[in-house]
Nucleic acid binder design. Structure first.
Lengths: 220, 220
DNA sequence: TATTTATTCAACCAATCACTTGACTACTTG
DNA sequence: CAAGTAGTCAAGTGATTGGTTGAATAAATA
């Protein structure tokens, strides 16, 4: 209380600005755009295709994200290339994911329903993953599109996009565990990769790791 | 590409759930409610008064926050007491604050405009703060209402709510720096406390620390 | 049981939202 | 300069939002 009368308008202005960021995170389409941008910078056209929306609509969403300062766009000739405006945005998205994951039980239900029994493709956590790669008992594969791998990947990972897995499957060692990861905890590609690998007799697992989030500090 | 057709509906469901959390953060009133709850659990009535909204409206906002699983309410006799549903929610709010603070330049402008020259009341960062308290060159005061102090405070802090500062000012040592903190980086109370203290000849500073966020890990 | 206090629910309104369509601007290449 | 491609802008539509008001519950107390 006390200084409320003085404070009001300043406080409101502050919360309005914070809400601008909140609003940016309030549309599923925008969250999808953000996750795409968390993998690698992209042009408007390509984002639109990725999230299955019209270019105009995508552009408008990008304007909103820009207003909230979560993304920046730079012109490169014919194209405008958007990217997240900082590491901390990845961290924010990561937190949002984790909070939702922790508290919204429907998400877990969805996941087990979609991935089958989640322990059917037992995920491997971050720390044991690193150890297993070091001591050579596991091979880590990044099943995202090549450009996303090129923009940054877990150390020691091989790039094998899902749709090329079939072709490269022979080159993988049969005497080690294959651990696959993709964009995030709900990205289906790693699950698909694991299924393909298992069908061929490999010992395969999903990594319990969000692709761009190795930058975002520790995985608890 | 590839598995989009299969993926679509699952992906949409996931992003819809994430957006539920985003939506919860998209209204300035709700963010204010969350910050209040980050200090201490509270009844609907008292939240409504604190954020200056009708009880009905506040209740509806709380329902939305509950649906997003950011808060929980438990009945205690006549009252329903709401609180944040976990530490991680505090961390999420903290990230939101930091991202906004980092990228939205208008926020800094607002702050300097309101707090006067920000370095006029030079904030003290987390680490030097801890050192100064340990070696006894500084006294830390928590200027939030007593209940919020009671619900949790920085170790070693004294509780002196702003509106009682005048009365207790004599009891503070004149030979040490007084460092004040309150709810968050935009909470005006600590600034006001500093002004009062300086007017009486004290060496006073604001702490660059968000009250409940000592739980939320390190201050970078 | 009737009354009081705290909270929620339901109905409503103006404002905002996500998305569409179609026109407009920016840049590159022929 | 004309033609083509990438992106933005403007106007419009139905759905959702934040807020209001007043009635309906829920629990404590008289």
């Amino acid at each position: 209380m006390g200084c409320n009368t003085h404070t009001r308008t300043f406080k409101n202005a502050v919360y309005d600005h914070l809400a601008t960021v909140g609003k940016a995170l309030s549309s599923s389409t925008r969250l999808e755009i953000l996750e795409v941008l968390a993998q690698a910078p992209r042009t408007v056209d390509s984002i639109a295709a990725e999230v299955d929306q019209s270019v105009a609509n995508t552009s408008q969403h990008l304007q909103k994200l820009k207003k909230a300062r979560l993304v920046t766009g730079r012109r490169d000739g014919l194209y405008v290339i958007y990217s997240l405006s900082g590491e901390d945005v990845v961290e924010l998205l990561d937190k949002l994911n984790r909070v939702a994951d922790e508290h919204i039980k429907e998400l877990e239900e969805l996941a087990t329903e979609f991935f089958g029994e989640r322990d059917g493709l037992e995920a491997v956590d971050h720390h044991t993953l690193l150890e297993r790669i070091k001591d050579g008992t596991a091979v880590l594969i990044d099943v995202r599109p090549e450009e996303e791998y090129d923009a940054g990947h877990l150390p020691g990972a091989l790039s094998i996009p899902v749709d090329e897995l079939e072709a490269h499957i022979e080159s993988l060692p049969t005497d080690r565990t294959i651990v696959a990861y993709c964009r995030g905890p709900y990205c289906a590609w790693s699950a698909e990769a694991v299924n393909q690998l298992r069908a061929r007799g490999y010992d395969a697992r999903r990594a319990d790791v969000s692709a761009p989030f190795w930058k975002a500090g520790d995985q608890t």
